[in-house]
């Protein structure tokens, strides 16, 4: 018994030490990890609605509580939580129930590898870029599976569309990322950021940045590329059969986590992360990522949806050549020592 008590005391002591000295638990649970992400998610939902409302000459959320109705997302989530869960008779029950949770895990996993500063990173990894991109790539598979498991025509068409879309944007995205990795000679996020020292990659590789940005918006499934969930054509697309809390989880994972993760990825890869680095480096990363998120959310107010046909055509005709040209330029430039410090 004494051992157990002693163990608990040691754990508590460790936790206190950890939380006060920004150890791994603090990182995973509080700052770049869960708590921060969920608070950010609430702010993002609210901001998106408020901003769309401003452009559209409306007021937006107002009555849910807090200043200007900032508690609206929480109210929405409570509403989702209390709604009835309906599992269609024809659905593949196990997959149908498991997929929202898997999707949340997959969508949030890259956060572990994303650095906020040189030390503020949950799981430092020399292959962080590869891991993050691998998880990002996994998401359309979940969409496809969801469409399959729902066993509804609309959901299935939505899933197929997501697969088609992925065929379009996947290659440009990876080729652009390869340009970054080549220029920095590493898959490690910290090294990637450090090698953007005088000039960001967005300035030295503008073509790659553009291709990556467009592919990224498509990956997020945001307007103008919200093709898999096209509400006016196929009801709500791949998650048409979901209700209640499972729908809420999908909204969080598919709409918010992907937005956050990919915006952060773009910031780290192209906008120089925490550079110039003086002051509070985490704040630099956050502000840059926030501007990217704001821009992407702003697209909702000015663009309609594209068609799957045009998107895939654009991806293969324009984005892929762009990213390959970018890769070749980077390849040539590395021999000239343009990307300083690291010699081939």
């Amino acid at each position: 018994m004494m051992d157990v008590a002693g163990l608990i005391i040691r754990i508590v002591k460790y936790l206190i030490y950890d939380l006060t000295h920004m150890g791994p638990v603090f990182k995973a649970v509080i700052f770049p990890g869960l708590a921060f992400v969920f608070i950010l998610a609430i702010v993002l939902v609210w901001l998106e609605r408020k901003m769309a409302a401003k452009v559209q000459m409306r007021i937006g959320p107002l009555y849910a509580g807090g200043p200007e109705g900032i508690l609206q997302p929480i109210a929405d989530f409570i509403k989702f939580a209390f709604k009835e869960l309906i599992i269609p008779d024809q659905a593949d029950k196990l997959l149908f129930i498991a997929l929202p949770i898997v999707s949340l895990v997959v969508a949030m996993a890259p956060i572990a590898f994303m650095p906020y500063s040189r030390y503020m990173i949950i799981s430092p990894n020399p292959y962080g870029l590869l891991f993050a991109m691998a998880f990002v790539t996994l998401f359309p598979l979940i969409i496809l599976l969801t469409g399959w498991a729902s066993n509804s025509k609309y959901a299935f068409i939505g899933g197929i569309r997501a697969a088609y879309q992925q065929i379009g944007y996947e290659l440009p995205m990876w080729f652009s990322a390869l340009g970054v990795a080549l220029a920095s000679r590493s898959f490690d996020f910290v090294k990637i950021v450090e090698s953007q020292q005088p000039l960001w990659f967005a300035l030295t590789q503008p073509l790659g940045a553009l291709a990556f940005f467009i592919a990224m918006v498509a990956e997020m499934g945001r307007i103008p590329f919200d093709i898999p969930e096209a509400e006016q054509e196929i009801a709500a697309g791949w998650f048409v059969e979901y209700t209640g809390i499972m729908f809420g989880i999908y909204m969080v994972s598919a709409m918010l986590m992907k937005l956050y993760v990919l915006s952060l990825l773009f910031t780290v890869m192209y906008l120089g992360g925490w550079l110039p680095g003086w002051g509070l480096p985490e704040a630099w990363t956050f502000v840059k990522a926030f501007i990217v998120m704001f821009l992407i959310m702003f697209f909702r107010a000015v663009f309609p949806r594209t068609r799957i046909k045009t998107f895939v055509n654009m991806a293969w005709d324009k984005l892929l050549p762009l990213s390959i040209i970018n890769l070749l330029i980077v390849f040539a430039l590395t021999f000239t020592g343009f990307y300083g410090g690291v010699q081939p």
């Binding site: 901003m51 401003k54 452009v55 559209q56 000459m57 409306r58 007021i59 702003f298 107010a301 000015v302």
Partner: peptide, 11 residues
């Protein structure tokens, strides 16, 4: 769109 973001007549 940006113009409407800053000049805000609400209807």
């Amino acid at each position: 769109g940006f113009k409407y973001l800053f000049t805000v007549p609400r209807m």
